[in-house]
């Protein structure tokens, strides 16, 4: 990836200069640059050929987020706390699952929650009462109503959590099957909650999310007799995009599978670097 690359020679049939990205022609600058347009081929833009300097950048678009995620990770490891990024679409049951998780684990682990929500504290309010330290990040509060938590947002929540007193932090990401998957936040593991009410084709439609999950919780499994959901087809689709993910069938409502989920959390907590 360290090589200067000029794709537009092939696409557009003209040349911007060689190798170093400099072309120092002068005085032939007629072209108006179309504003903000997308396209692999946009007609004649011979105006670029002259009066244009090409500057190689080769910088990852998420570089800043990744650097902040590394800083978060370093803080987590220094404090000996394990962090799980919990993601799902809206309504898949993350908050109910978390509430039941806290109910089962609050005697065993000291748990913190980072609660991402676009505008309200409703989810955070539902998690009160189990002794967990909860930091709410409203993503419309200075972050432009984002549909995900990114590393700087998570970082902003850290001063509000007693990191060194915690064993485990669960980040409840904003409900969304697309955006959260693209943003690492410094987590040690990624779990996603998939509800069988969502349909078996979802892994193929949202491959980035399903591909990055270490664990997929197949939630609302108690509804299986009432739905046309094809569990076998779902697993086949999941395997197609992510052959490695662990899976657990759970129902946050009935409690089915929650002990296995809590065991997974306990195992992840025990094996993370820096964990006591």
């Amino acid at each position: 990836m360290g090589r200067f690359h000029r794709h537009d020679d092939n696409d557009h049939g003209h040349d911007h200069g060689h190798g170093h990205g400099h072309d120092h022609g002068h005085g032939h600058d007629h072209g108006e640059v179309p504003g903000g347009r997308f396209g692999d081929v946009i007609g004649d833009h011979s105006g670029y050929e002259t009066g244009t300097e090409r500057v190689t950048v080769l910088e990852r678009i998420f570089g800043e987020n990744e650097r902040t995620a590394e800083a978060n990770r370093a803080d987590f490891d220094a404090a000996g706390v394990t962090v799980v990024n919990l993601m799902s679409s809206p309504g898949a049951g993350k908050t109910t699952l978390l509430r039941e998780t806290l109910r089962r684990l609050h005697d065993r682990h000291r748990i913190g929650i980072i609660e991402g929500d676009i505008a309200t504290s409703l989810d955070a309010d539902r998690l009160e009462g189990f002794g967990a330290a909860i930091a709410l990040v409203n993503t419309d509060d200075g972050f432009g109503g984002e549909c995900h938590l990114d590393a700087p947002m998570v970082r902003s929540a850290l001063p509000r959590l007693p990191l060194s007193e915690l064993d485990l932090i669960i980040i409840e990401n904003v409900g969304n099957l697309v955006c959260p998957a693209e943003f690492v936040v410094g987590e040690h593991a990624r779990a996603m909650v998939f509800s069988i009410t969502e349909g078996e084709e979802k892994p193929l439609k949202y491959p980035v999310m399903f591909r990055t999950a270490d664990l997929v919780l197949v939630n609302k499994i108690d509804l299986l007799p009432h739905l046309d959901f094809d569990l076998g087809a779902f697993y086949a689709n999941l395997r197609a995009v992510n052959p490695k993910a662990a899976t657990l069938e759970v129902s946050a409502r009935t409690g089915q599978g929650l002990d296995a989920w809590c065991s997974w959390l306990t195992t992840v907590t025990a094996r993370s670097p820096g964990a006591a």
């Binding site: 690359h5 120092h24 002068h26 300097e53 500057v55 678009i61």
Partner: peptide, 12 residues
């Protein structure tokens, strides 16, 4: 999985 800015064209 590429996701980067490769180059800029600047007007002189």
């Amino acid at each position: 999985e590429e996701f980067l800015i490769t180059s800029l064209e600047l007007a002189e």
